[in-house]
Design a binder for these strands. Structure first.
Lengths: 242, 242
DNA sequence: TGACCGCCTGATGCATGCAACATACGATCG
DNA sequence: CGATCGTATGTTGCATGCATCAGGCGGTCA
């Protein structure tokens, strides 16, 4: 599970992180509020470097979609529009679907064992109602699955996507729906089963259905405890009519 | 079809292109050979700016995967490994599949009419054996389809993917297979039909099959005119067994 | 002759300074 | 009193200079 790739959002060790990673983390961790201005001089002082490397990093983060540089005005943390969030989740669905299919084709691998451990542990925590633990395990499940696809380009695109979503802010909300945890856990178990069965098609289908369901939980404002997928927003939400 | 987004690889007008776009184009257009060193001072002189903006651009291009910056040594045009190419094509398949599904769900839109025009024109050129014209139309078909998905994030990821592939270099080879053009053209027509029928599932399925077939033509060295998908490389090539 | 060691050149890495511009505020005029 | 214009400030945009280091080349020694 260790990554030697340069651009990671969760470096295993602390200090020896790239400037890019450190500033990115400052944004994705929610330390800064969206819309907040990011002065080059402030960052330069904070990280004890000059403006030059800061500017290089900011340009890259703009390319990643995390910030917006308004020329001659300033740099601001970007707040994804709802439309963009929907778009990103549509991508998330197919990317994770691909990951599941690739893992199913791949067969035995370290990540498969990790998935087994994660799913087993998450079944315990979900039944126990330990939301915090389960939330972390959900993250692990998806990340491990993408890693298990053995496709570095997929991992890169997925990382960028999750960074743009500031996913950390969203996951917690999902699990506020009572009963979602156990349902989600069951879906994880099913996905793992079909992957073990080396059924790429079913793995992809199940994964996409799972991601779609989780997405719905996130995008639909939590108004009632059990919701039956009624739509209360005219905007396209990536519905499954296939 | 016009894009006002900052990072595009094919700006509609010439001169007022960003420095990033201009340098990126220098790479993706094949003007530079892979492995070729990209000196900061050379680029600075060529574009009549100082090294500072050049460095910012190079850092961004590194993030895009187009170049490799070896610290204290130099910057080099990156040559994707064959494995990376396979990985990128796996992504291309699902991204274009998503695009087709989204277009099918969307219904009438300008891009749909454009697709109709492109497919009709390409049927003519493919039957006439006009390879050059057909190659351009193939590009148009795929680009228009992705644009028609009405998902800006998908467009962005797709652009990056195509840049990494240096797709321009590869497409031409595909059409060297005699008969591929007419087959491909027929697939395009079928895809357009199911999109018009608003059948997202079939659209995605057809699109993925088409991309996969085209990919095979690209990845399998052209040894015989009609090949029946036999594999001559042990490496995983993203096979469809679902 | 062969291997090793030190310099030398080229590159990048970064700090700094100046110029240009967008924005906000306050004074002035109708 | 309201609108407008000028200025003041804070920001980014870019050029330049120096420090640092990797890699190559030649000389020297065994």
């Amino acid at each position: 599970m260790q990554h030697t790739i340069g651009a990671m959002n969760t470096p295993p060790v602390g200090p020896p992180a790239t400037l890019l990673e450190r500033i990115r983390t400052k944004i994705t961790s929610g330390e800064l509020e969206p819309g907040n201005p990011l002065s080059e001089v402030s960052l330069a002082q904070e990280f004890d470097v000059s403006r030059t490397p800061i500017r290089e990093v900011l340009k890259q983060l703009q390319l990643e979609g995390l910030i917006e540089i308004r020329p001659k005005v300033g740099t601001f943390i970007r707040e994804p529009t709802r439309r963009e969030i929907v778009e990103l989740f549509q991508l998330k669905e197919v990317l994770e679907g691909l990951a599941a299919a690739l893992m199913a084709r791949r067969g035995s691998c370290p990540e498969l064992d990790q998935l087994e451990a994660i799913v087993s542990a998450s079944e315990v925590s979900s039944n126990a109602g330990d939301t915090d633990t389960y939330a972390a395990q959900v993250q692990d499940f998806h990340q491990t699955l993408v890693n298990g696809a053995d496709n570095t380009k997929l991992v890169e695109q997925y990382e960028r996507l999750m960074n743009q979503l500031a996913y950390f802010r969203l996951v917690r909300r999902t699990l506020e729906h009572p009963g979602r945890a156990v349902t989600s856990s069951a879906e994880h178990r099913h996905i793992l089963t079909v992957i073990k069965d080396k059924d790429p098609f079913e793995a992809e289908t199940a994964m996409r259905a799972h991601v779609f369901a989780s997405t719905q939980e996130l995008l639909v404002p939590r108004t009632r405890t059990t919701l039956s997928l009624e739509r209360e927003e005219p905007a396209d939400d990536g519905g499954h009519e296939d």
